[in-house]
Structures are given as C-alpha cells and as structure tokens.
Design a binder for these strands. Structure first.
Lengths: 339, 339
DNA sequence: AACACTACTGCAAACGAGTGCAGCCTCGTG
DNA sequence: CACGAGGCTGCACTCGTTTGCAGTAGTGTT
C-alpha cells in the first residue's frame, strides 16, 4: 500500500505516464483528448492519487514553499501576520516555512541560508533592523522577497507597511482634542526604522497641531520592551519636564509606563493619559484599558503574501509597495488633563 | 550562477559524482579514500555547494519536514510550543510546517492531507478535540506522530501533556493554605479533555484537603473564553452560593471573573481570591496581577519534537509518554479570606 | 491522390542525488 | 610468478514527474 504514483494511474487508465501527467495538469490538459483526460482524472481520483511535490519540484525547480523570517514568533505581533500570510498562501498551493532570527544578524543569515537550501521560492522578511546588507545581497542574487513592517532603503523590493505616520497623527490628534498641549513621547530604539519614523511623525504632528514642540518632551527607550519603556518615562519625570500625556512608541513601552505610574502613585488617566501603538491582545483587560493605535496585522500578512506570489509569478514586475491605514482604539487610558 | 550541483563538485575535484556523493555523506565516507574525501569536501566548500534536499528527498523518501497541527496559532498558548519544537527540530536538520485547523474537523482533515502530500515525515498534533477517529486512522496507516496537550485514548501514540492534576492540586492547596475553605470552580467546557480532567482533579483536591465538597460550588463555562467565564461566575453568584475563592479553568475564564468583579464592585483579592491556569503573557500587567499555574509550554514543544524524532528514527519503538510538572505563580489576586 | 495540417499520444531524456554491482588496481601471500 | 583479497572508484539505474520531440492517425484542401 505505498502511495500510488503517476505511473500507476497511467497504467490503470491504459495510457502513458506522460499523457496522464498532461491530463492531470490543468495547464496542459488542452493537449489531450477530453475523454482521455476525464478518464485519467477519474482513475486518479479512485486510486487516491496525490502528485508527489518533491518529484515535481525536482523537475520544475519549484518547491511550493516560501520562507517567513521573523524576529520572534512569541512576540504577539507576529501570529496574526503569519495567519494572514497563510490565508493567501494556502489556496495558492503554497506553504510557509517559519524561522526565528531572535534579531541576531548571524542567526538571520544562517536561517536564510537554511531556507534557501530548502529551495524556497521566495521570502517574506519581517525583521526590524534598519540596515541590511544581507537583503541587498539577496536581492542582487535574484531571490524574490517582500518586506513587512519596514520600507527598504535603496533596495528595489516590494514592501508592505502600516501607515505609521498617519497612525501617530491619529494618536496625537486624539490627545490634542482632549485638551492636552504638552505631550511627551517615549520613542522606540532609533536603530529600528519604525522607531525613527514614529518619532519623526510625532514631531510633525505636534507642530502641525500647534502644540508645544519642546525637545525635552521626547526620550528614546533602548528596546521595545516594558523595562526600557519604564526607564524612559523615569528619565522624563526626573528631568522635571511638565506634561499631561504620553505617546508611547508601542504598547509594551506603554505598559512600562503603567509600571512607573504604579510605583509613583500617578493616577491614569486622571493625572496622566497614555496611548500605545499596535493594539496587542488583552490590552482591554488592563486597568485602565489602554487606548492605542490598531494595526491590521492579518491584512498586512495577507497583502505581503499576495505581493510575494505576484513577484514569484513575474519577477520582472517592478516593486510595488503598499501602505495600510491604521485606526485609533479609544479605551480608558486617555482623558482630558486635570484642570 | 545557478547553484552548484554534485556533478559540478565532482568534476572540479576530478572524480565521479558517485564518489563525491559518498565523500560528502558522513555515513558513507569510509568507502572512499581519505585523501579523495578531503579534497572533495574542500572543493565542495569552496564552491559553496549545498545538497539539494528536494533531489535527496526524492531518492530517500525523506523530506526533512514535519507537520505541526494547531487549532489556531493566534492563541498565545501555541507560539511558545512552536518555539520549543523548532528549537530541537532545527539542529536535527528538520523544519516544521505549521497549519491551523480552527478546530474544524473538516479543515483538520484537509490540512493533514495537505501535509501528507507534502511528504512530511511526522506529525505533531496539538488540537484539543477529545475524540479523533482521524488520529486512529492515521496511526493505522503508519503515520508517525505525537500528541501535545492531550493523552489519546485507545491509540498507541506518544504524547506529551502537562500534569494538570498536579497543577490543580497546587492551586487548591495554595488557596487552602491561605485559609479558604469554600472554593468555587468555573470549569472549562466538558467536551474538552482538559476541561474534564481539571474539574475531576479539583474535586479530588478539595476532598483530599478536607474542604467543603459542595456540588453547588462548581459550574462549567461553555467555552474557554472570557465571556463564558463571566457567565459562569454570574450563575454561581446568582444561585446565592457562598464562597471566598475561585479556581478558574484557565486564565481567560479568570479574566471573565475580573469583569464580573468590576461590574458588581467586588474587591479582589480582599473579598474574593482567584487563580487561573496557563500563565498567559501579560497577566502580571493586570490589576491585580493574576495568580496562576504556569505551564512550561516551550519545554512541552521541545519534548514533543524529541519524541517525534525518536519515533521517526525507529517507528517500532513503543509509544512513550511524558507528563510535565507545572508550577504555581503567586501574584496579587489571592489573599486570605476576609474575616 | 497527394499534400498539409491538426489533434493527439508515446518515447526518452531530463532534474539532482543515492546505491548495488562490477571492475580496476595494488598489495600480500604461497 | 600466480592467485586471491581488499580498497576504491566508476557505471548505470532509480526515485516520480515534466516536457521537447517525433510519430501516428484522421481531416480537409487542391
């Protein structure tokens, strides 16, 4: 009871393997007599024939797999993206091979090497580092790929990114609408592209809305985590700067702020408002529930996969990039400033 | 600049492809002259040769991939498990193909079919449904697999499960140690194996510790979510049963209890203690931070992968199963009962 | 009736690596 | 010097599928 092969099907249908192959492949089906094709298909079905993708891949140099390169699957940001990716890969007959880089350049290189040796047809790269000689090299070598969450500089690669600038403006406008005029920003690490773009957008929004544009109001955390966020807020507080609201570089940094509120007895949102960025799961369970900017992660993944499939189908097509709109989720961590 | 093949290496080294193959494969290296082998290896390296796993797979019927079947990657339970799995798969030269079933039996069957046609060498199955004719059939057909989070009934398949009963006892003992004698249980759905086993363990622990064993103290939620948990606690409250602590079937159910506390003005932990189960991420950010039972998810994944690799290496080996110990994480949601 | 043409099908050669078998050479032994 | 035994290496086939090419039969045109 080994799995039936194409030959078995051909034999049972009384035709040559080549004919069976053509009959089973929709693209070449036109080359064989319609009756014969029908017969072959029926036999294949009754035998429970499944084409062996390995053999097929050997001949066609296509593996039907794409690599998904993440910094860390355990970051709640990524599962929805992966989900979105698979949502479009699957109907197209592709599968995704997921690897974690832990943001370690050496590991990233090793993992991508590993993926290439597995003959992936394309790469979806979601790592956050801002420079990437590796990407540049891969692109030169003709590896088709798309980037997620970051626009590549100088490399002609499709990318799909959330419209951070618009999101930041949404947040700042919300705060300003509540009456805040002195808003602080605990930015993410400036070695990441999102870190710098959000910080830049923050300054822009503050100016556009005519709020206090005081450089002392922004500090940068040295990682995207809670500890670094807490550290950042402490710096601001200890510098004696006055402000009534905080725009955090991401939700984790906002959570770090919560820790500082607790440790210093600051009431949120009565004395201090915060807005995060990303809309991680379970933010609504916090006290107070965190107001944040929601990113359509799943849609990002889906769009990325679509772009990749396009690029695989026609590698010469010029790199198209997509900017996805974000939305503001108002919860309990923002309120008008104390009079 | 196409990737160099075995032939290219052989040619460059002045030997036949067969010799090169043997030289490169540690298992057959002994068959060739040591000097030749060294030379071939050096040439291969300098050419940047990588064996094509597709071609290799065709001949050896091994794909170097295993399937990972999850209900839903977006459930925070699974990423750490996946991480653990890849942690051991990777050094062994294997990769994991992840699929989501959404707990839909039809989809599950389709997905597993898909995996099999991709020639996976084994399956790690982490779906939660309690009956599984499909598993039985796969096992009969000789598909090697291991189950995670659930012990299969009647099928001789290795499994790796957290020691739920011990975990439940840890929780109840903690509450009892604080002085609680009337502890309620909002159980998970009894259609899932963990739902029933935790409920059973709860009754056992209560009896063992000599606490009030009142059937009115346990209710069951009809899903593992927050809404269902809230609903369950409301039922208990409205029935007028007296109790000072709650053991929730999982963390989400505990979160549902938080919602009810908020809506009825119940002080936690002053008036009511709660303990959850699973130790999801960010539980420490809640007010109060949730006391819960921690499951070593990553270790579970790693252990599962090890078991699978063993089974692949020697399919005749009898199914070995592992029960992993859990631990209690005491945070702010538990305190002695109000006097 | 010869011709071109279409429509179909089979043959055989790939794809890249693994492997049983046979042959070669060399060495050691009688 | 002849013979056998190892030690290495090459030949050729295999895995399951795709695909260029050639061949056959049937149809229509002149």
């Amino acid at each position: 009871m080994p799995a039936p092969t194409l030959r078995d099907v051909a034999e049972a249908a009384g035709v040559h393997a080549a004919t069976a192959s053509r009959a089973l492949n929709p693209a070449t089906r036109g080359l064989v007599n319609a009756d014969t094709a029908r017969r072959v298909i029926k036999v294949a079905e009754s035998l429970g024939y499944r084409p062996n993708p390995i053999a097929r891949g050997l001949k066609t140099a296509k593996s039907g797999t794409v690599g998904i390169v993440l910094p860390d699957l355990m970051n709640p940001l990524f599962p929805p993206i992966v989900r979105g990716i698979e949502e479009v890969l699957e109907p197209a007959g592709y599968s995704g091979l997921i690897v974690n880089t832990d943001n370690d350049p050496g590991r990233e290189e090793w993992q991508i090497d590993h993926l290439r040796s597995r003959q992936v047809e394309g790469l979806i790269v979601a790592t956050a580092r801002v420079d990437h000689p590796l990407m540049r090299q891969l692109h030169r070598e003709g590896v088709v790929m798309v980037m997620v969450n970051r626009r590549p500089e100088g490399v002609d690669v499709p990318s799909i990114t959330p419209d951070d600038a618009a999101g930041v403006e949404l947040a700042v406008r919300h705060l300003a609408g509540l009456g805040h005029t002195r808003i602080a920003h605990v930015a993410g690490p400036q070695s990441t592209s999102t870190g710098v773009s959000r910080a830049r957008a923050f300054r822009g929004a503050v100016r556009d809305l005519g709020l206090d544009d005081d450089p002392a109001l922004v500090t940068t955390a040295d990682s995207w985590g809670e500890a670094a966020g807490a550290e950042g807020l402490r710096r601001l507080l200890e510098a004696g700067v006055e402000f009534t609201a905080i725009f955090a570089g991401n939700d984790l940094i906002a959570l770090g702020c919560y820790d500082v509120f607790f440790e210093r007895g600051i009431e949120c949102p009565a004395e201090m408002s915060v807005v995060g960025f990303n809309d991680m799961p379970f933010l609504d369970k916090l006290r107070p529930p965190l107001t944040t900017i929601s990113i359509p992660h799943q849609q990002i993944g889906a769009e990325a996969a679509r772009l990749l499939l396009d690029a695989i189908a026609d590698p010469t097509r010029p790199a198209r990039s997509v900017l996805l709109p974000l939305s503001l989720v108002v919860r309990g961590s923002t309120a008008p400033p104390a009079a």
